[in-house]
């Protein structure tokens, strides 16, 4: 099961990276987000899985696809300057970062110890538990998040409206 969801996630992300058409790339992103939601279910966290599908696949990607269709620029424009050195350099940087970090994780004694110690099944995360922690320990953060969503909403309308 883990391998299936990991492959859905990584192949979706890779398809997004390699796709020329931006709408198809957006749909690959939706597949990747569904794969991540599956990984969250396997991590005994159905709350995060539901939020992932509702907020990312449901709200954010729909907003992105809506903007892509509205802007009517579905294909990547021809490059103004070809920058071969920068492109190969960034590709090498990304590959070095990925290989180095994976090697670091596989060699880490602390991660290995944590993986063995935490392998016992823990109870699944419930919405009730999350709500209790959220309103007991992080009430101020919750209010600030609400205020920030309001500010972002007002800001988005102010930025896109032609004449206020």
């Amino acid at each position: 099961m883990f391998l299936a969801f990991a492959l859905i996630t990584l192949l979706g992300a890779l398809g997004m990276l390699l796709q020329k058409n931006i709408i198809v790339a957006g749909l690959f992103m939706v597949a990747a987000f569904f794969g991540i939601a599956g990984l969250f279910v396997l991590l005994a966290n159905p709350v995060a899985a539901a939020l992932q599908i509702i907020v990312y696949s449901g709200a954010i990607m729909v907003l992105v696809l809506f903007v892509i269709m509205m802007l009517n620029s579905h294909e990547e424009e021809a490059a103004e300057f070809s920058r071969p050195i920068q492109r190969w350099l960034s590709l090498a940087l990304v590959l070095a970062l990925a290989v180095g970090a994976v090697k670091l994780v596989m060699a880490s004694k602390g991660v290995q110890e944590l993986a063995v110690r935490g392998a016992a099944t823990s109870p699944a995360v419930t919405l009730q538990g999350v709500g209790a922690v959220l309103f007991a320990d992080h009430l101020l953060g919750f209010e600030v998040a609400g205020l920030m969503l309001l500010a972002a909403m007002v800001g988005a309308v102010a930025l896109t409206k032609r004449n206020l």
């Binding site: 966290n45 709350v47 995060a48 939020l51 992932q52 907020v55 990312y56 709200a59 954010i60 907003l63 992105v64 903007v67 509205m70 802007l71 995360v125 999350v130 922690v133 959220l134 320990d137 992080h138 953060g141 998040a145 920030m148 969503l149 500010a151 972002a152 909403m153 800001g155 988005a156 309308v157 930025l159 896109t160």
Partner: peptide, 23 residues
């Protein structure tokens, strides 16, 4: 999970403002 909740709230704000800037 609570932190994850805050992160996706920030991501939603970022998406709204970022897409408005692109438009």
């Amino acid at each position: 999970t609570v932190f994850y909740l805050f992160i996706i709230a920030v991501a939603a704000c970022e998406a709204a403002v970022g897409l408005a800037l692109i438009i």
